[in-house]
Design a protein around this nucleic acid. Structure first.
Length: 421
RNA sequence: CGGAGUGUGGUGUAACGGCUAACAUACCUGGUUUGGGACCAGGUGACUCAGGGUUCGAAUCCCUGCACUCCGACCA
């Protein structure tokens, strides 16, 4: 993409009403636009990152047997009354409205009900199980206090997978696979080294749920980490008994602020029971489906990456989620000159090869282009200038380092192959 | 939902109760410049969040509402 066609502009100053680092950087660099507290639009650059994250998650979900679909956002009152979650005294962050004819409806804040009620029409026999449907969709929560930029929004994009299994053993088998898939996801988006599987309260059907917590001061949770084991315990269940039951060494545990970037949860028959989601087993008996839920907030994940992978100059995206693979910058203003032509040629050639290139073809000073490039945070910068041409090619520099080097254009073409995830 | 604070050009800030609401940046014109947010000249752009009130006079003081931010509660 040509930067001259990217309508978003970078800013030197962040809006006065943003304090969180992720929102400040993402707004300054032109990734997101704030509509109101807790509600953000994703601008072209932001959407690219979101889609990269989505693809990484989708790939892992499909690998463990997930089947993508999409449940509706508008849902009727009756469905939620079955699980006793329509009442505002029980769930206080509903967005509710009504149809012209007076029918009460709600905007989904989670998906258990949608899946449980729908699947009663499709699950009848043990041969129909297990299944693992999942969604990417926007979710609405009328938070009394949104905060931390895109880390806790009123409208947010998430992935929710639900597992429907015949019994607990079958459920556990999938649950373990999901753990690994989640680890892979956080590894692949570049925060695996500071993300810990964390034991948290499990509700009525299992002793624990598992949260994936990424260390950052911007987080709302406090976790206790055992580095050696690579796992953590959420403060809400942090007791001597739990430490012991997990076989952790209390003396080596460290306390950290963290943000929950994903969670997996055993639901047992909590939802299959009210919806009578059951099947006929091999013996001809009716049996309730055993469920699990597996969620990741993509906006929060993107915000977390921005929080932890950035410096005073701006964002530093990992290649896997960067909006572009390369930031190609041409210096000099003579658009008819050889340097400019060479840059155009490189842009066309790389684009033809399928490499995602952001081409800064604007009539800006070198300093302005470099500053913008650092702020936008594409992992690799390629500069074409009279100087680089004279030195034998183009200058490449990693966003995260200080060193730059000159390579020939042929080397550039050889090095940058299409970015296959 | 409790507590605290803040609303001024697109953005960031300034202005004692008193001249035509100032400065920077962004934007537009022209010129010059191109390896770390260039320079010169000119220009557009604000009923100071909304509605009331006090006053000869309100961006400034008071009231109400709304919005935003922070702390706490909540987060299925």
């Amino acid at each position: 993409m040509r930067q001259s066609q990217l309508f978003t502009k970078t800013r030197k100053e962040a809006p006065a009403n943003e304090v969180s680092k992720n929102a400040i950087l993402l707004i300054r660099a032109g990734y997101i636009h704030k509509e109101m507290a807790g509600v953000y639009s994703y601008l072209p650059l932001g959407l690219r990152v979101l889609k990269k994250i989505e693809d990484i998650i989708r790939n892992e979900m499909n690998t463990i047997g997930g089947i993508e679909m999409r449940t509706s956002i508008i849902q009727t009152k009756e469905v939620w009354e079955k699980s006793n979650r329509w009442d505002d005294n029980i769930v206080d962050n509903w967005f509710k409205t009504e149809l012209k004819n007076g029918t009460e409806i709600g905007l989904s804040f989670t998906n258990e009900e949608a899946y449980s009620s729908m699947l009663t029409q499709y699950i009848h026999s043990y041969t129909d199980l297990p299944i693992y449907p999942y969604d990417f969709k926007n979710i609405f929560r009328n938070e009394t206090r949104s905060k931390s930029g895109i880390m806790r929004g009123r409208e947010f994009y998430w992935k929710a997978l639900y597992s429907f299994s015949k019994d607990d053993a079958e459920h556990q088998e999938f649950y373990e696979k999901a753990k690994q898939a989640y680890k892979n996801i956080f590894q692949n988006v570049g925060i695996g080294h500071i993300t810990y599987m964390t034991f948290a309260s499990g509700g009525s059907f299992s002793k624990f749920s598992h949260e994936f917590q990424t260390i950052t001061e911007a987080g709302e949770d406090t976790i206790y980490i055992d580095e050696a084991k690579g796992i953590a315990i959420n403060k809400e269940v942090y007791t001597d008994e739990v430490i012991e039951s997990l076989g952790l060494n209390k003396d080596k545990i460290i306390e950290q602020k963290a943000v929950e970037v994903g969670n997996i949860f055993s639901l047992g028959t909590k939802f299959s029971e009210p919806f009578n989601l059951s099947f006929t087993n091999e013996s001809g008996e009716k049996q309730l489906v055993t469920m699990g839920s597996y969620g990741i907030g993509l906006g929060r994940l993107m915000g977390t990456i921005a929080e932890v992978l950035s410096d005073d100059k701006g964002l530093i995206w990992p290649t896997s989620v960067s909006p572009f693979s390369l930031h190609l910058i041409v210096l000099g203003k003579d658009k008819e000159g050889d340097t400019y032509k060479k840059a155009e040629e490189i842009y066309n050639e790389l684009t033809k090869k399928g490499i995602e290139v952001l081409f800064d073809d604007r009539d800006e000073s070198a300093g302005a282009k470099f500053a913008d490039s650092d702020l936008i945070g594409i992992p690799m910068r390629v500069v074409v200038s009279d100087k680089s041409i004279a030195a034998g090619g183009v200058e490449i520099k990693e966003r995260k380092g200080d060193k730059s080097e000159i390579i020939t254009i042929e080397e550039l073409y050889k090095t940058y192959k299409p970015n296959c995830e």
